[in-house]
Measured scan of single mutants.
Amino acid sequence: GKELVLALYDYQEKSPREVTMKKGDILTLLNSTNKDWWKVEVKATANDKTYERQGFVPAAYVKKL
């Protein structure tokens, strides 16, 4: 199945390749080969529509579930 990670801290994206997350968010882990930056998929809701974004977050800010 898919691997999930838990956001340990809030993170505000600093570039278009990154994604914003809030502490407590559960994210889908896409790639953890880089030890510093993990690629995740974030589900977000805006205007009653759910959309998914993929991007990088600092590996130290998340932990595998």
Rank of each mutant, 00 (worst) to 15 (best):
T33K: 11
L30W: 04
E3G: 09
L30R: 02
E3A: 08
G55L: 04
K14N: 09
L27P: 00
V5L: 10
L27F: 07
G1I: 12
T45N: 12
T45D: 10
V62H: 01
G24H: 04
N31S: 12
Q12C: 11
E3P: 10
T45I: 15
A44I: 15
K43C: 14
V40G: 00
V5I: 06
Q54M: 08
L27H: 02
D48W: 05
G55E: 02
D10Y: 04
Y11M: 03
D36T: 14
L65P: 03
L4R: 09
K63L: 12
K63D: 06
Q54C: 12
G24W: 06
Y9H: 10
K63F: 09
A46K: 14
D48H: 10
V19L: 11
L8N: 03
K43A: 12
T20C: 05
L8M: 08
T33F: 08
D25S: 06
P16I: 10
K22S: 07
E13V: 06
D48G: 15
A46C: 14
M21T: 01
Y61M: 11
S32Q: 13
M21E: 00
L30V: 12
L29Q: 00
W38M: 02
L30I: 14
N34I: 05
T20M: 04
S32G: 10
K39L: 15
M21C: 08
D48A: 07
P16Y: 09
L30Y: 04
K39D: 03
T45S: 12
L6H: 04
K43S: 13
F56P: 01
Y9W: 11
L8Q: 04
A7P: 00
E18C: 05
Y11E: 03
K35V: 09
V62S: 00
Q12H: 14
A59H: 02
N47H: 12
K35I: 10
K39I: 13
T50M: 08
A60H: 13
K63Q: 14
I26Y: 06
T33G: 09
L4A: 06
E52A: 14
T33Y: 08
Y9I: 08
Y11I: 00
L6V: 15
L4P: 04
S15C: 08
R17Y: 13
E41Y: 07
F56A: 00
K39Q: 12
S15R: 09
K14G: 07
G55A: 03
K22L: 07
T50Q: 13
P58G: 03
V42Q: 15
K39R: 11
T20H: 04
K2E: 11
R17K: 11
D25T: 06
S32K: 06
I26G: 00
T28Y: 12
V62P: 01
K22C: 09
L6E: 09
K64R: 14
K23E: 06
L27Y: 08
R53Q: 07
F56I: 06
E18D: 05
P58C: 04
E52C: 15
W38N: 00
W38D: 00
K49F: 12
F56E: 03
V57E: 01
V42G: 09
A44C: 15
A7H: 01
A44D: 10
L30G: 02
A7F: 02
I26A: 02
L29A: 00
Y51K: 09
S32V: 06
K14Y: 04
N31K: 06
T33N: 12
A60T: 12
A7R: 00
V19W: 04
P16E: 10
L8F: 04
L65A: 05
T28E: 10
A46M: 13
T20A: 06
N31I: 07
L27K: 00
V19D: 01
K14R: 13
L4F: 15
E13H: 07
M21I: 15
D10M: 03
E13P: 15
A59D: 02
N47L: 14
A60P: 08
S32H: 06
S15Q: 06
K14C: 13
T33M: 11
G24C: 10
I26T: 07
S32C: 13
T50K: 09
N34Q: 08
K23S: 07
K64E: 07
L27T: 01
Y61F: 11
P16V: 09
K43V: 14
K64A: 07
L8D: 04
E41R: 09
P58L: 05
W37T: 02
T33S: 14
G55K: 01
V19M: 08
R53P: 03
G1H: 13
T50G: 10
Y51E: 10
T45A: 10
N47Q: 11
L27I: 07
Q12L: 10
L30C: 06
W38P: 00
A59C: 06
T28S: 07
V42N: 06
W38E: 00
